[in-house]
Design a protein around this nucleic acid. Sequence first.
RNA 1: GGCCCGUUGGUCAAGUGGUCUAAGACACCGGCCUUUCACGCCGGUAACAGGGGUUCGAAUCCCCUACGGGUCACCA
Length: 486
Amino acid sequence: MDKFRVRFAPSPTGPLHIGGARSALFNYLLARKHGGTFILRIEDTDLERSSRESEQNIMDSLRWLGMDWDEGPDKGGPFGPYRQTERLGTYRSYVDRLLAEGKAYLCYCTEEELAAEREALMTKVELPRYLGRCRSLTQGCRERLEAEGRKPVVRFLVPEDQTVVVEDRVRGQVAFETNGIGDFVIVKSDGIPTYNFAVVIDDATMEITHVIRAEEHLSNTPRQILIYQALGLPLPEFAHISLILGKDRTKMSKRHGSTSVVQYREQGYLPQALVNFLALLGWAPEGEEEIFSMEQLVDRFSLDRVAKNPAVFDMDKLLWLNGYYIRQAPLEEVTRLALPYLQAAGYVGGEVSHVQMEWLKHLVGAVRKGISHLAEIPARTALFFTNELTYSAEAQRVLQEEQVPMVLNTLKEKLAVTPMTEEGVKGMLKTLAKELKLGGKQVYMPIRAALTGEVHGPELFDIIPLLGVEECARRLDSAVALVTGP
RNA sequence: GGCCCGUUGGUCAAGUGGUCUAAGACACCGGCCUUUCACGCCGGUAACAGGGGUUCGAAUCCCCUACGGGUCACCA
């Protein structure tokens, strides 16, 4: 194959959906694998719902995920423009051809008339579709209707008794009968083409070689093929990937929780984790390895191993995968990513000094093991930023033990002469238990409870240096005061 | 409802007629590690939707049924 051109063609009617991101990813991966071209095309023919905001969101999300395009509305390219509303002239010439050749016609039916027709067919238990009432209007008829102020749409004349076969790279041959397809609208009354028409013209004129998109488009494909044929345009290869389903096995929607890429971004998912996860949804690698960087995915991805069946979005696995990436990534990077969450919680100011940064790295390193996404950071680190510790029920119980005041006071003394390093604290803690002749649990649990208010948490040898001698002393005193009474 | 796609453990999935007494991952359960939780390590429970064929032999091929999904817009 001398040329490999694929596209991701979202309609900018909302933030980038997780399913859209996966479609984009599959296209991107294949383009990079084959040294081809990845094109971003904005399908904004729905004037009502499209917005530049959404377009921007989609581009930001794609970039955040690590997908860059070679041609697109923002960077141009030899086949532009890349926004459908800017290609109206192109569509017009093709529509005129269809009209001139009698392969399409004007239709003046009103919405009410169409609704009535649909209703009638439904009650007769027939396929609801357009029956072709305006197929052969006379010139006079047309003039009268236009005089009434009716704006026509253009309908494609669907040939009868034909079988259209979609050659699909993931599904094989899929046949459709044209009799089940009514003459469909290709240009709306406002002069804007519909999706089914614009997509064909764009894919053809942009010389797209492989159309890889979600399965919901499979049923539309025969319509599109009919247009390709009517215009004598070469067909691209098609590949329809299955949908992503929610837990209840219906198409993933807001009801299932977060569906847009930005939401995951905001909750502190790493783009690498999301990409890895999305790739595994509907595609299976050859070996048993499941952790892949974008580069590795580019290397291994192939349409042959894309599944036909829909996949349920498994939040548990995403959480695990994200936690895995958080644990694996360089501490420096995770800290940088965690910073905004700490700032939003008011724990850290806008300016971060070098010393503070080192402290933050230590902090993040101490808590990263137990989290699956960065949004958990504030809750996990709250104890380091509070002046008034609250003690959990278990912590209070632990502090009631009789040896506690003695343990805490001894610790306080030792702290003053202990180097605030992991090793220093570790050694001090060890000798403390030995000198006191107490079981580990009897000394370490009270310390933990006094210092954090909890019975679970990071390692003591992380907590103590992080808190510092003074703060530790303060907390120790508070705890002692609490149990010995005023 | 018509058309189209799909159906391997709770989830993602490997498997393309014999090597399947069916892999791996997440989740779950148990153990180890850890004087906490987690992480990590080790182990375990758990599946070919049902029924007919074809075949010496079927998770793999065909048919039917059931179930799930998609689509039938002047949305994409």
